[in-house]
Design a protein around this nucleic acid. Structure first.
Length: 733
DNA sequence: CGTGACCAAATTTTT
DNA sequence: TTTGGTCACG
């Protein structure tokens, strides 16, 4: 017990020790809310409650993971405690209680990308040009409608929506919002499952999520929510800081605790952030304070171009001479990352790009996942359409159209139609379809209950790596490496959850966000402000404080208060220092536009900031200098492209589209049991020989046992993928 | 039916 | 700067 309450201030202590009844903890930035939550869980367990009766809801899967670890540090290994996001908890419950919720046991989760695809297809079928604007509008309206932000769906959209839901139903598919909708059907089950409920980041809870919570605790009201209305930055997703207020109405007699002492940042940082956010009308008054020193003022700098801004940031990072992981660059838009990546690379500084394109949304990965999902659920039309002709097997647009008509006419699913092909479908198309069905059926046998890896191995074999195995060019090679990476993570998943099958793996990856994939490498952190929520760094750089960018204006609209909260969140990520910058011209795709300083700059108290005069002057002087430099850079760039990696100036590395290629981990940690001695010898970089192709060098290795494969560059015929059992090591040199 | 060339559009933020 | 969609040809 002593360790559970150790080093806590009075309000923190109160939050940890009051375990019965509703409790709301208003926790300012850096006031130790994660600490409170973990201690609280530990305390409940310590009081003799079974961990099975406790559930903690976090905002991301990563936060869940971390919380679990921290609880275990306090009281040792625990089993049965549920920790997860709303969505992952809902998905898990729906799998367990699919009958009660009246959903298919084999439902598949459609992510944002699948959702978009489906809507596009529906529009096309209705002869509506599915341009991006309409698709966006559909998604926005559907979601707003479902979350209750709007009461009616108008003219064509109501129709689209109806069809959308029908299609999902027919496909046994559930989209993200659907997970929450359906889990509310478990009104008999839910109240019985847990006695203690904890919720992190409560300010970002949407109405439907709140309903979910209310159902969970309807029996004994032991609920503790932790949040900060000033950090509500997801209103576009239905979050509403008003629920913090609502909490007290909903749970009469709720106890409220305020955590206002900040343990993270210096005085200047706290003061600047607080006075900025104080400009919001709509907030609970609160006073965040710290006993820490004032520290350095917040530096503000101005530049002509984003390239110079990036140069300055990188230079400052170098001058500060600290561990690179202690730095973060937080921008408003993912699209802003590029300059920083380039500049860091040029200076050979390691960095981690967090967010951006999800590994699991890469098209080659989604192709594989579609196959695997189909193996478990053949009704999923989005998946079926995605891969029926991948790799090319002669099933083109015309055939697909015909299939659709057929299925529609006889009111059958596409899959049923495929199985009983009418004679009107002939030739290569017929052949292609048949072989496709065979693949899926074969896959199904394995997918049902074997560990996930076995399914992907079979799939790669049956499809010759879904057409990505031919390694025609660098890009294809990248794709194949990504597939091998997927295979690796499946293996890891099975190791972690030995009893699991493909289903569990697929659920997990559909609900993983881009910012929580394993990153491995350490270095300067690059991410959006949203992705930085809940994190902290010694030094924080905040570029792009310009009108239009931050606060961001889209379609002539700004939500000033939310943008200001975002600014508040961004500043309070810092422990020691904050550097804010702006530029004079910025543009993402077309010609750069003139931009002016963000109004937020004026809202920072003068005594907390210092304008970096140098940056203003320098930006004038260097004008010509930099563009000259840019030209040189461009030359090298082109040269590099032609001459290949051996080019001496290759500090300008990886110019290619391989943007966020996920780096293969340095070495697979816990080495698998060596199945053959062959396996030991055939490794990356080793020279091997093959009976048919002769000698070559191993580039990539994947798999184990008899499925172990290698990408080999052969002298005679270039790149090939070969089972390692066909290879023999050759003494190097 | 597959391929390659050309043109248009796109950039919030994420479960 | 990239991606995707369409069109014409083989």
């Amino acid at each position: 017990m002593s360790s559970i309450l150790k080093d806590l201030n009075p309000p923190q202590k109160k939050s940890v020790s009051t375990i019965n009844g509703p409790l709301m903890v208003l926790a300012g930035a850096g006031s130790g809310k994660t600490r409170v939550l973990t201690r609280r869980i530990a305390n409940i367990v310590h009081q003799g409650i079974s961990p099975h009766r406790i559930i903690a809801v976090t905002f991301t899967n990563k936060a869940a993971q971390e919380m679990k670890i921290r609880v275990e540090e306090l009281i040792g290994k625990i089993d049965g405690l549920w920790i997860g996001t709303f969505h992952s908890i809902a998905a898990r419950l729906l799998r367990m209680y699919h009958a009660q919720a009246d959903v298919s046991r084999y439902f598949v989760i459609y992510d944002a990308d699948d959702q978009k695809r489906l809507i596009k297809r529906i529009l096309k079928e209705l002869n509506v040009q599915p341009d991006a604007k309409i698709v966006r509008e559909c998604i926005n309206l559907f979601e707003a409608y479902r979350r209750g932000s709007i009461n009616t769906l108008f003219k064509p959209y109501s129709h689209y929506y109806k069809i959308y839901r029908e299609q999902l139903g027919k496909s046994d598919a559930i989209d993200f919002t659907g997970l929450l909708e359906y889990v509310l059907r478990l009104k008999d089950v839910l109240p019985e499952l847990w006695d203690y409920v904890l919720v992190d980041e409560f300010q970002d809870t949407s109405k439907i999520q709140f309903d979910f919570l209310k159902m969970m605790v309807s029996k004994n009201r032991n609920i503790c929510v932790v949040g900060d209305d000033d950090q509500s930055i997801y209103s576009w997703r239905g979050a509403n800081p008003a629920y913090l207020l609502r909490f007290k109405q909903e749970f009469k007699g709720a106890c409220t605790v305020r955590l206002e002492q900040n343990y993270r940042s210096t005085g200047n940082i706290i003061k600047a952030a607080s006075s900025l956010v104080a400009n919001n009308e709509n907030r609970h008054e609160k006073t965040l304070w710290t006993s820490a020193e004032k520290g350095e003022p917040i530096a503000i700098a101005s530049f002509e171009t984003p390239a110079k801004e990036a140069k300055w940031i990188v230079k400052t990072i170098k001058d500060l001479k600290d561990n690179f992981d202690n730095f973060a660059v937080l921008y408003r838009l993912n699209a802003m990352s590029r300059n920083f990546e380039e500049e860091l690379r040029r200076n050979k500084i390691p960095y981690r790009l967090i967010g951006g394109l999800r590994f699991y949304s890469r098209s080659e990965i989604k192709d594989i996942l579609s196959y695997l999902r189909l193996a478990l659920n053949k009704n999923s039309e989005t998946d079926l359409l995605r891969v029926i002709n991948k790799p090319r097997r002669g099933v083109g647009k015309k055939s697909i159209e015909r299939l659709f008509k057929l299925a529609r006419g006889e009111n059958k699913t596409i899959w049923e139609t495929l199985l009983e092909l009418p004679p009107s479908i002939r030739g290569r198309s017929r052949k292609g379809i048949n072989s496709f069905c065979r693949i899926i059926e074969e896959l199904t046998c394995v997918a049902k209950d074997a560990p996930a890896v076995e399914s992907i191995d079979l799939l790669l074999e049956l499809t010759n790596s879904v057409g990505y195995g031919s390694l025609k060019d660098e890009e294809e090679e990248d794709r194949f490496e990504n597939i091998l990476e997927l295979r690796r993570s499946m293996g890891e998943f099975t190791q972690k959850h030995p009893e699991s099958t493909l289903h569990e793996f697929l659920d997990e990856v559909s609900l993983l966000s881009s910012s929580e994939e394993e990153d491995g490498e350490e270095g300067v952190n690059l991410m959006t402000i949203h992705a930085a929520k809940g994190l902290e760094f010694d030094y924080v750089f905040l570029p792009g404080w310009e009108k239009g960018i931050f606060p961001l204006i889209r379609q002539d609209e700004v939500d000033m208060e939310e943008e200001r909260r975002l600014a508040y969140v961004s500043i309070t990520r810092a422990r020691k220092r904050v550097f804010i910058s702006k530029v004079g011209r910025r543009g993402f795709w077309g010609a750069p536009q003139q931009v002016t300083a963000s109004p937020f700059l004026d809202e920072l108290p003068p005594e907390c900031i210092s304008w970096d005069k140098d940056s203003f002057v320098k930006s004038q002087d260097e004008e010509g200098g930099f563009s000259h430099y840019a030209d040189i850079f461009k030359d090298n760039f082109e040269k590099f492209d032609k001459t290949g990696p051996s080019s001496p100036k290759s500090s300008v590395s990886k110019p290619r589209k391989r943007k966020i290629t996920r780096k293969t981990k340095p070495s697979t940690k816990g080495k698998k049991p060596p199945t053959a001695e062959n396996e030991k010898k055939i490794r990356t970089g080793v020279i091997v020989s093959h009976p048919k192709f002769g000698k070559g060098r191993v580039k990539v290795i994947a798999g184990q046992g008899k499925m172990r494969k290698a990408i080999v560059y052969f002298k005679s015929c270039g790149k090939k993928i070969i089972l390692t059992s066909f290879l023999h090591p050759v003494a190097d040199k």
